[in-house]
């Protein structure tokens, strides 16, 4: 479903964030993207949700060359994927319900559809009693659940998570991981960039390790560090 062909990303003509990355990710996979800060994880993820364009090489999603995507088509592409961030990126002036509903509003869904889908997805992430809370009234874990609900409400084929547990305590992190695993078991492909060593080591999923912008390891059922 995702293919990187010799992908490089250069900032300001000389800072190499990614260099000659080749890989592919199949439908339904669960992939960890690990590596030290500055290794290129965030750039990798940004190429996928088309915040950035590759300087060299091609990134394909479901057969579409993302580098050739026109500006006005980007919103429509993003509705097919869900993205979750370390800082949640919720709209501060909307309630939990409105934040999730917004992802449907942008697709011009009908009111009826919105009223059906939002409650059920909020229930799935375990927030059925926090509909009317604003982000600042929610804990970090709860905010991330809202973000995940928003990412999933359009039933995307791919869930991208950029350090989703980076701001959360260990217990809450595991609750979020349970939720993400559940999403993966329901058939959604998951790509998660992370620093969380014990999560990666415990879950035994495919691990792609980046260093200085290059893939240094790509291992099925791998661990976080070189010890595996």
């Amino acid at each position: 479903m995702i293919e990187f062909f010799n992908v490089s990303k250069v900032y300001n003509d000389h800072v190499y964030a990614l260099q000659g990355v080749n890989l592919s990710i199949e439908k339904g996979e669960f992939v960890f993207l690990v590596g030290p800060s500055g290794a290129g994880k965030t750039t990798f993820v940004k190429l996928l949700y088309r915040q950035e364009k590759a300087s060299k090489g091609q990134v394909f999603f479901d057969g579409y060359n993302l580098g050739k995507l026109r500006r006005k088509d980007i919103p429509f592409y993003r509705r097919r994927i869900g993205v979750v961030f370390q800082d949640f990126k919720l709209l501060p002036q909307k309630t939990a319900y409105e934040n999730v509903a917004f992802a449907l509003v942008v697709t011009e869904a009908t009111q009826k559809e919105i009223e059906k889908k939002v409650p059920s997805i909020l229930e799935m992430v375990g927030l059925e009693d926090k509909w009317n809370s604003y982000p600042h009234e929610l804990s970090g874990g709860e905010q991330q659940r809202v973000a995940i609900a928003r990412a999933l409400v359009n039933t995307p084929q791919l869930l991208i998570a950029d350090e989703p547990t980076g701001n959360l305590d260990p217990d809450t992190s595991w609750e979020i991981m349970d939720l993400i695993s559940r999403v993966n078991r329901m058939g959604t492909t998951v790509l998660m960039a992370t620093h969380a060593r014990d999560i990666v080591n415990t879950m035994k999923k495919r691990v792609i390790a980046l260093e200085n912008g290059q893939v240094v390891r790509d291992q099925a059922k791998g661990g976080y560090g070189d010890e595996a």
Binding site: Y49, Q51, K72, I74, P75, F76, Y77, R78, R79, V83, K89, L90, L91, P92, Q93, F102, A103, V105, V106, T107, R150, N154
Partner: peptide, 16 residues
Amino acid sequence: RREISIMQLVGATDGM
């Protein structure tokens, strides 16, 4: 401006 970038990430068109 942060709200604008969030809306874009969720797939809002420029018009919306």
